[in-house]
């Protein structure tokens, strides 16, 4: 009772702070300095139609590298924690019921389409809303659908590891190339900017975002894989 009262008191205090914040909030009518710079220069300098992508991949590319690293660490820790003590994995004791004709057939039809859509989203990240992280999540959702269809399905750890480390290495290599050929680490202008608004434009941004997409997809799939392997009888 006293505990709940303390919780309520804490939340009331927080709500008071939030209300105070909202009362003092004045919506901006002009872009602030950094946003103004991005809006004015990203299309001209980098050739990316999607300014958010330009910020994520080039202006704040180092942050994105850190983000991908954090995600990689999370996937690795999940693998480590779950693998511990699972060496002698028992086989499934009970028979799983079949997943049904509808789900099986639909997943056979949908999986390639979902993979294609994921690739479309991350390849077009510099033109349309979307990008590597979103595309990667879509790729992993195909893996989730396959797992729903057949809970005992396992994706090859080796393939996931190869895709993930290759795309990570290439990402870093492109970053270092930016240092050699252009202005600095992860500078996307190592390739010609191209015609604005076309697929092959914006320098190396589509390349980097595709690699991020593959890496994120592989990481999410490995998370799903590891969590699915905990399924026991």
């Amino acid at each position: 009772m006293i505990r709940n009262f303390a919780v309520l008191l804490l939340l009331l205090g927080l709500a008071g702070i939030f209300i105070h914040l909202m009362q003092g909030y004045i919506p901006a009518t002009e872009l602030n300095q950094s946003a103004h710079y991005y809006a004015a220069h990203s299309a001209e300098d980098l050739g990316a139609a999607n300014i958010v992508t330009a910020i994520i991949v080039t202006y704040r590319g180092l942050d994105t590298l850190g983000e991908v690293t954090v995600l990689f660490l999370a996937a690795t820790i999940i693998g480590m924690v779950l693998a511990n003590g699972h060496k002698a994995q028992r086989s499934l004791q009970r028979q799983l019921p079949p997943s049904g004709e509808l789900l099986t057939t639909a997943s056979r039809l949908l999986t390639p389409l979902i993979l294609l859509f994921g690739a479309y989203v991350f390849v077009n990240g510099h033109l349309t809303p979307g990008g590597g992280f979103q595309g990667g999540a879509i790729l992993a959702s195909a893996a989730l659908l396959l797992l729903l269809t057949d809970p005992l399905k396992r994706f090859s750890h080796r393939l996931i590891a190869v895709v993930e480390s290759l795309s990570g290495l290439l990402f870093i290599a492109i970053g270092v190339l930016g240092m050699v050929l252009a202005g600095g680490f992860l500078d996307s202008r190592i390739l010609p900017t191209g015609a604005f608004g076309t697929l092959f434009s914006a320098g190396s941004i589509p390349l980097i975002y595709s690699l991020i997409g593959l890496k994120v997809g592989a990481e999410f799939t490995s998370m799903l894989n590891n969590l699915a392997e905990t399924e026991k009888s």
Binding site: A28, L31, N32, S34, A35, H36, Y38, A39, A40, A43, I51, V52, I55, I56, R60, D63, T64, E67, V70, L71, A74, A75, I77, I78, V81, L82, G131, F133, A137, V216, F220, M223, N226, L227
Partner: peptide
């Protein structure tokens, strides 16, 4: 662009936050 678009920075920030949040959630579940 300068007079027509909203601030792109919070969106880039939140994209990062969503991805990290998913990683954290997966770890909590583990």
């Amino acid at each position: 662009a300068v007079t027509r678009i909203i601030d792109p920075l919070p969106q880039a920030l939140v994209l990062t936050a969503i991805v990290i949040g998913l990683g954290i959630t997966a770890m909590m579940l583990t």
